[in-house]
Design a protein around this nucleic acid. Sequence first.
DNA 1: TGCTTATTTAATAAACTTATTAAACTTTAT
DNA 2: ATAAAGTTTAATAAGTTTATTAAATAAGCA
Lengths: 208, 208
Amino acid sequence: MKTSKTEQEILQAATELFLEKGFAATSTTDIANRVGCNQALVHYYFRTKENLVRQVFMTNLEQILNLLDQPLPEGLDFFGIADYYIDIYYNYILGRPTAPLMIINELLTNPERREMVREIFMKNLRRQLMYYNLDQALKQAIEKGLIRQIETLDLLIDIASLTLASFLIAPIYADLLQRDAEAQKEFIIHRREETKLLIRLRLMPQKI
Amino acid sequence: MKTSKTEQEILQAATELFLEKGFAATSTTDIANRVGCNQALVHYYFRTKENLVRQVFMTNLEQILNLLDQPLPEGLDFFGIADYYIDIYYNYILGRPTAPLMIINELLTNPERREMVREIFMKNLRRQLMYYNLDQALKQAIEKGLIRQIETLDLLIDIASLTLASFLIAPIYADLLQRDAEAQKEFIIHRREETKLLIRLRLMPQKI
DNA sequence: TGCTTATTTAATAAACTTATTAAACTTTAT
DNA sequence: ATAAAGTTTAATAAGTTTATTAAATAAGCA
């Protein structure tokens, strides 16, 4: 009763198409065509398109959230920790560059999805603990004058913003300046280093 | 032959719905229902849905690009100029918070739209001149040691990334922490100031 | 006024969408 | 080998979508 090969292929094709064109613009017929199977088979395995959408959405969202779930690396200062997380996120998204857009897009246009996110958050106590630990560690470092005053949430949003936007902008950059896929990847690597520099300067305890 | 009231109403309703639900999820029947007119009327004025989509897309994109088209304010140093542009963008998007998502979404999922963007760029020589002027001014300031070494494109992308992401994250933030619209606006204002601080620190000529 | 043009509507064609059903085909397990 | 369970297909119902058409209504003006 473990998921069959065809079922996986359908899920895979659905994921690809949803990421390429968005949920609304993808039909179950499109999915079947990509797999090379009958359209009814999509419904046999997942019954409704909504189930399929939900599954793809949840899987991708959980993957992204789980990246934060790893323990803080030992023996690194905050500059090192920031770099470490920036690398993790850039590397992850390099592998599936349109996933964040799909997530963001669904979250913004579909209120039900936001309910799902709260569920995921509430369910995972470990993640809440991680946030609490980071918050405490930051506060101590600030008190000791090791880093500049910053809210924990702002630091995370700064990193997330710069990372996310790199991947939204990269394909547009490549197309506009008529660059190839290789140049696009270089652009992202370059933006990763710029992100690290920005965050480093944000945290460095010098007076403005 | 100037655009009739009904035509404007249709365009307005289409814009609203496209921004709320996305292009694919909005039907011409939805648009007619919001206006309170017959569905055929939508096609009478715009013939195809694609024409309507194109027009809404182009209008919003041009508005966003035109924000950069204003002359550099006099008597400001680069820190002041950066703040000035950050304010302009935040204020604009505050008025139409989902416009950037629609633009980004279309650009990423629909290759034809990227062609449109190149057209717009190439057509507007003044914008190219603006970029050239900014580039020159930055290079001089760097040479004189007034600001830290930075590529012009990176500075613009830094600002755009932080601004854009604020608006993508704000509604999710509000929903997740169950805050109201007022708190969401405050969040964005707060992020605007964090953006200014980040950019300021990025430009300040201190050794890392 | 009456003629012309513009706007609006109802009706509908043609294509496409999701989902179900019954029948055919494969596997698997005894 | 064969019965049971699982997989796949063709056919199709029911609904939606875009777009067109012809007829009805309203405006503009000579």
